[in-house]
Design a protein around this nucleic acid. Sequence first.
DNA 1: CCGTATCCTTTGCGATACTG
DNA 2: CAGTATCGCAAAGGATACGG
Lengths: 130, 130
Amino acid sequence: MVNVTSTEPVDSPATGCPIAPVVDIVFSRWTTPILWQLNSHGRHRFNDLRDLVGGITAKVLTQRLRQLERDGLVTRTMHAEIPPRVEYEITDLGRSLAPVFAALVSWSDEHLRDVGDARASYDRSGKPQT
Amino acid sequence: MVNVTSTEPVDSPATGCPIAPVVDIVFSRWTTPILWQLNSHGRHRFNDLRDLVGGITAKVLTQRLRQLERDGLVTRTMHAEIPPRVEYEITDLGRSLAPVFAALVSWSDEHLRDVGDARASYDRSGKPQT
DNA sequence: CCGTATCCTTTGCGATACTG
DNA sequence: CAGTATCGCAAAGGATACGG
């Protein structure tokens, strides 16, 4: 979490990096897959979303959803029924991240293999010399 | 860190989210400001980079630079002098992230204020009801 | 100068049990 | 169903001291 509005210096990895705030907002752990699912498959109930994301516990999913709701990227709708039904949906602000995600998909398609190659090469012989 | 090459399921926030691997690579803590500095201001020595990034300790900077080097995003050049001189530079692969960063800058310009507003609104009255 | 080693605190997360 | 409460561990990160 970071101070989004002020121009004061922050302790986070920010100084001189203009995209540090948005990185904090969008790329915290689990937030990307959550937003991705809500963006591609519409509105979802809590447990459905939990299954879609996969591997996340209820506690952490709740934490992340609360954060995303506070940041205006996701809405939470409570239906007063028994048993209770809660639905989460991405907002227009959340959908506005589409170009960012598209850029990442594009980069993955073009360059992810290069990273794998670099790692293999590094692990074989490239270790840093003193 | 994530298994980049295989198609096997991973435990990370990945299942069904195609950009999970690149998020792991590029948006780990401190990596974005490091890449940003190396991308905007060229080659740098270790301590210069440390000052440019700001707030990062030598230990953590070393860890992140090793990771970036292994992933092929940064090069490390040792000059055998006394005192020693080590220079870090972004690679072509690292520079290929430019469109991603550009998309993030653009989104910040257009929507970061909305997040601040959403937070203020949420903290005032929007807390989740049971 | 460029790290590494060590210690220690903090943070995050999983597991489990429980509630409206 | 959709969480919350509590516990406990494990990893990440800071501070400091030291080494090639």
